[in-house]
Design a protein around this nucleic acid. Sequence first.
RNA 1: GGCUCCAUCGUCUAUCGGUUAGGACGCGACCCUUUCAAGGUCGAGAGACGGGUUCGAUUCCCGUUGGAGCUACCA
Length: 615
Amino acid sequence: MIHVWRILGRPALAIRASPTRETAVTSASNAAPDCPGGAPAATFPPRCGPAGLRRRARSSSCWISRASSDRRGVGRDGREAEGTGLLNRHRGSTPIAGSNPALSVPRVRRIPAGPRVISPGISRASVVMTSASPASRPRVRFAPSPTGFLHVGGARTALFNWLYAKKYDGDFLLRIEDTDRQRSTEDSTRAIFDGLAWLGLTWDEEVVYQGANVAQHYADAHRLLETGAAYRDFTPPSVIETLRAEAEAKGEGFRFDRSLAAYSESELAAKLAAGEPYAIRFRVPEGHTEWIDLVHGRIAFPNKDIEDFVILRSDGTPVYNLAVVSDDIAARVTLVMRGDDHISNTPKQILLYRALGAHVPEFAHVPMIHGTDGKKLSKRHGATAVGDYQHQGMLPQAMLNFLALLGWSTGDDTEVMTLDELVARFDTRGLHAKAAIFDTKKLEWMNGQHLARLPIAELATLMAPLFERAGLATVADLTARHEWFCGVLELLRIRARLTDEIVAQAGPFFTDAVEYDADAVAKQWRDAAATADVLEATHDALAALATWEPAAMEEALRQLAEQRGISGGKVFQPLRVALTGLTVSPGIFDVLLYVGRERSLARILAAVGYLRSPA
RNA sequence: GGCUCCAUCGUCUAUCGGUUAGGACGCGACCCUUUCAAGGUCGAGAGACGGGUUCGAUUCCCGUUGGAGCUACCA
């Protein structure tokens, strides 16, 4: 068994926080020579990511775009009430309203009216009653494997879990499933932390690294071996591969045949004595396995379709399904909310919970996010990492809002919501079963909405570093001119969907030398001499103003246009080019105001000079 | 292939069996207007198909079709 620990020797990212379990290592010979999770490597924040990135302190300002009628729950419940006896039992176990809301809320979404007959011949139907959770405080977790960046689908799963925890005053845990040594990287782990931190999805308790719990997984596997729930399989993987290939060649599905591992007492003793390596397989019982999914209602699998799966490899390392169950038991998770690509793992895991004598948590399988072609979202579809959107100028709250609405809805027409609103409105009954397509257009619209509604001071805090990075100003400078900066932001944010666009459009307010866009000149300054005259007159009119105020400016310039018998546009547009070099900008009087009197007048004069200079 | 999940405008969605099937994004038109946005008004745009159950199905049931996921000593 020495090789069991070899893999644990790698530099541990480990910050082990999961409560130690009382389960003893099966036998002395199995005991670990040293503690696998021992070496702390404080490379990563032990909890919650960079403190500076924490948010969530804001008061709950609610942005509701339409009247928010009360949720549709009542009616839905009525329909659900017509379910099966199974459902009624489920409902019957729901605590009376007024007790812990976390227990009274999760409820079955949709239940087929008649019981689905799964295996008519088998009577031993074991049903998982999901809502009988004894947990006084819900505990949910997000358990990504660090094999890439934080994917938007993962971020949404994390969000739903986080929302659930916040809503019902529970705990949101983070577990890094790093037992795949080949693919797990520290960079990926960091990317997950960074992504969650950016989104503000802070977690409770310390991060658990699955790799640090291997000893427990190992012990659990052996415990199952002792109780007879699992058995040793000495079949070499290569043999299985061959068998599988043969079956597939014949167009059949391969299923491990238990008789392959039926050894006589003496055979077993001999193999053990010879030190032959073996995997541990779970002995899937007869019957069928089902649960009431918070999203899908009842889901059932005939056990005959589940093969005796490996829970511990022949090198002593745990396989996913065991590791997850073992860890979720240790973390006392009450609700497992994850992507619906895990639906087919669930029966195996339920079987494991039972065999381990543990309480089975509730399950909620949220739909996947697809690309525009209807396939699982991947690199082919462009940006799929939350970091990509962060760098495109997306606001975290917009990202969160958008993600929340992919696969969940409030039940009314509410769309734009703050994080606090999201928490207040979140309900597992609003979760959908259908996969959603990631629509970046709507994401951008959503970002524009948040950009427009964010308290201006918050936006200023957020934007200042971006201006500094663009070389437009320093944060200190912007802080010193806070009022002015906020005014500029007010002008720009309404015409931007991305923070990057704000920066891109801010040039005229920060630079001293305006560059004239060729198209703008060609279009608005066609007649150089006449334009120069108008601009000169404009300059004089503005310079004569007693106060530098938009109303006065407008009055003066409209008067000028009237005197000259031209439209206002014929004055404003050339002026816009003189001030910004561009054909589009915020309202011209706002530009004048925020560029400032001196700079504005100077720019107009410069334009006159430019137009009159012999090109 | 097997198992499982899913199915309302192009997209995200509302609908307690009775609605002119509502809203949002996107698209088009118009209004506002000094440009661009934002905003406002209007418009085009959906119940996959076939059977049941019912006085009445988008809604409940079954099937078909289509799509997706899983099918490892990956996670």
